[in-house]
Design a protein around this nucleic acid. Sequence first.
DNA 1: TCGCACACGTTATAGCATAACGCAATTGAT
DNA 2: ATCAATTGCGTTATGCTATAACGTGTGCGA
Lengths: 132, 132
Amino acid sequence: MNAPLLTKNQALVFDVLEKADGPLSAYTILDKLRDHGFRAPLQVYRALEKLLEYGVVHRLESINSFVACAHPGENCHSHGIVAFAICESCSQVMEFHDHEVDHRLMDWTRGKKFKAEKTTIEIRGLCEACAA
Amino acid sequence: MNAPLLTKNQALVFDVLEKADGPLSAYTILDKLRDHGFRAPLQVYRALEKLLEYGVVHRLESINSFVACAHPGENCHSHGIVAFAICESCSQVMEFHDHEVDHRLMDWTRGKKFKAEKTTIEIRGLCEACAA
DNA sequence: TCGCACACGTTATAGCATAACGCAATTGAT
DNA sequence: ATCAATTGCGTTATGCTATAACGTGTGCGA
Ligand SMILES: [Zn+2]
Ligand SMILES: [Zn+2]
Ligand SMILES: [Zn+2]
Ligand SMILES: [Zn+2]
């Protein structure tokens, strides 16, 4: 799924996420876009739905938040499973891929004949700066 | 953290989860326990908090639900990272551990000097029966 | 006996997400 | 050109998930 031209709302939401220094909740995005005419959560959620589909935004399940993909230009969906390390103090997020992990998990699912659709890997803890 | 004797509410919540054939939301648990005097969400959340701490219940972040640990008797916290495969059709959950995955993720976090506290691995898709 | 920790109950509130309706613009056959 | 299907958008209302804040009672060691 490659990203076509974004609509106005999608571009606004993406812009907010890209400029943010960490993940944002849908309602936080909404608040940041009130000046641009956003009035209701659905405006945000609908844009996010598309941005997730295009692979330019990721959803962090464990903190109900969204973050711009750390690999602009590339198609993140083609890199296999995406993993995140989320600092619970400063909320900074690091995104990475590990094919070995992918293979281990795929081996397991194959063994169980489980058809994986979407895999979440999120590590919560403290980043180097915050752990000091 | 080994599980001490459960209190009445904790035992009720755990019992509901153990007898369920899949993960339950806190509010579903609440509904199932109204006959036993439960009236408010906090009664469920407080019990869940302890059960999670004792390692006898797991939280599934991607579906906001809770499930009894599949390894009764053992201390699940000592097995490293717990991973789940969640069928989006029948909502059956398979729980497993993979030390190789643990090590890969730990290697990555060590490299980044990230202090991991809690790691979530959830694979959503279709179980063998539902994929057919 | 005092103080503390813990479980519990209740009310209220905060935070996250979607249903359902209608409208407008676009596209792409027929 | 016209019709139908698709897509995006705006609005209102609603539902689901989780916690804050307050008070009660009980057990237990200092
Ligand atoms: Zn990415
Ligand atoms: Zn940090
Ligand atoms: Zn377990
Ligand atoms: Zn299934």
